[in-house]
Amino acid sequence: MSGPPAGTAADETPGARLRAGALAGIPFGIASFALATSFGVVAHDAGISGVAATVMSAIVFAGASQFATIAIIVSGGSLGAAIVTTALVNSRFLPMGVAFAPAFTGGRLKRALQGQAIVDASWGLAARGDGTFDRWLLFGSTAVQYGTWVAGTAAGAFGGSLLGDTDRFGFDAIYPAFFLALLIGELRHGRALGVAALGAAIALVLVPFAPVGLPVLLASLAALVGLHWRRDA
């Protein structure tokens, strides 16, 4: 398995693509389990019951935003502030969902439900590199990560951290490493380099000032700028 599995032939059956997605999702499933146990422990220490923490992972299923909302509550923030924080941290799923939209099928409810499978690593896995996406790779990869995210949260919340401090395994480096690998693949198209550099610059400049989540959302504006470059070229 070298090279992005996004290269899976589009004429393979949905079942085969689903399995390919699940297989490709295993490293993220492992990382997700480790991060989820940390979340379970953090939630427990914040006085949140194991049942509540596990239900949160099962129905919110957005790791970074879950850590952020718990941090807001622990620091005495209001319910409104915590929910706004959730929206900001998860706001990057809006452009990701727009990009993925043509790959989904069915009526509005079915499309809304399929959109719930969008998480960072699966979105990247399912990207074919030409602006189109494979929904079966998304579903397969997300299914694995969903299972380990919920199971890891329960393990951390009820059992404490079985693994000790999971940071020592370096699992938290797996996600950015994967995004970097996908990015390197994208940079083979000339214009993408400028857009990536601008997106990174926008995000870094905003980090010290903007609420968590906003830097990544606003980095998507680099794509709009890049569109004008193309027209001028």
Binding site: G124, P176, L187, A200, L204, V207, P215, A222, A223
Partner: peptide, 15 residues
């Protein structure tokens, strides 16, 4: 959208 991937991926990496 073709350009969204490099923008978002670069932002996810640096943040």
């Amino acid at each position: 959208i073709v350009l969204l991937a490099p923008a978002l991926l670069a932002a996810l990496v640096v943040t």
